[in-house]
Design a protein around this nucleic acid. Sequence first.
DNA 1: CGGTTCCTTGAGGATGATCAACGAGGGTGG
DNA 2: CCACCCTCGTTGATCATCCTCAAGGAACCG
Lengths: 196, 196
Amino acid sequence: MKNPQIPLELLITYGATFKEYQKGEIIFSENEYPNYYFQVVSGSIKMFNTNDEGKEFTQGYFLRGQSFGEPPLLINERYPASAMAFQNMEVVRVPKQKFFQILEEHPQIQKDFLILMARRIHNKATTSKDIINQKADFRIKAFLNSYKKGDEKELIPFTRQEIANFTGLRVETVIRTIKNMAKKKQLEVRDHKIYY
Amino acid sequence: MKNPQIPLELLITYGATFKEYQKGEIIFSENEYPNYYFQVVSGSIKMFNTNDEGKEFTQGYFLRGQSFGEPPLLINERYPASAMAFQNMEVVRVPKQKFFQILEEHPQIQKDFLILMARRIHNKATTSKDIINQKADFRIKAFLNSYKKGDEKELIPFTRQEIANFTGLRVETVIRTIKNMAKKKQLEVRDHKIYY
DNA sequence: CGGTTCCTTGAGGATGATCAACGAGGGTGG
DNA sequence: CCACCCTCGTTGATCATCCTCAAGGAACCG
């Protein structure tokens, strides 16, 4: 695990336990009260909401080394979204009180969390403005840009459904829009795979 | 100023300066790099984005005592949105380096900021899910709920345009939807004023 | 090879956007 | 006090984008 939010060894000294999840399993659900601090050991998770009509909205993905679900823990509120294993994966967790204790006893870690939270807000503000009030192709471009690593054209490892869930669009709209973008040379589709 | 994020006296010992803005004046703009830590002394500000077609999206309002624009400051990034005086108002500000110094020298304040950032994320996650993927009346209800203080029916102090900017809708849509909600007794409109 | 997941296409529909006027109320200066 | 202006609210008509529904097709995996 590279650059874990909190080193595993440290977590272990505070009584951390490890747990495996199969792809699709729920780690916690919207509206529950948090009891643990979580970190991804391997694999990744998806944070998401489901609306009245069953349509899903993806708040974000969390990869190996990243912590997730801390804000509600810090402010004693219910989870605003659910967390699901996006692949077979492993998490490490410590009980709430232990987490607070870690923050107290390790000022540098507390500071790291302040920076992390700031980064998350920045991210969410950017994502919001890129989705709300924007046309389908703009939303998709914003998504692709944010998940792109380098400058070269690269394979986008998300299904059209996943892109739809993240951008607040429907699969069919994503398919048609992407086709259009390909026609305008804004991206490439080879073998149903998207390169951007 | 009640419950200011950082007490004014303390800010002053770190060289804070005060500045007044007229309603509509810009305090900082999207894409600029931050140089100051800001706090509202009186009045309020609006954080917002403008899209290609000039349509505005309101990220949030910040009232007296609240700090704003800290996340980009903490992570050395550009502002993702602009800040404008929503009324005639006053801010207090300290230079970036002084702000970091305050955090270093006052652990309790650093902790307060961690909590504050967590609260903001929680808020943004909630707002996102209430806007993206939702129908007009749901968006408006979510907005009204979030800005409502008590349990009694109360006057909503926002224009329809402001509601539109916050919910990602158009004024006309807000007007028509509110009219409809009034017909369904979900709120009241007397003298053009909204009670909810 | 069969099942599962993902992708695709077309037709039709609905919600919200756009455009163009106009109305209402409040404040200001003559 | 009245006229004017400015901001905000309102309405109707038309339009566009995206959604919905329904039906297959393609790719991949065990």
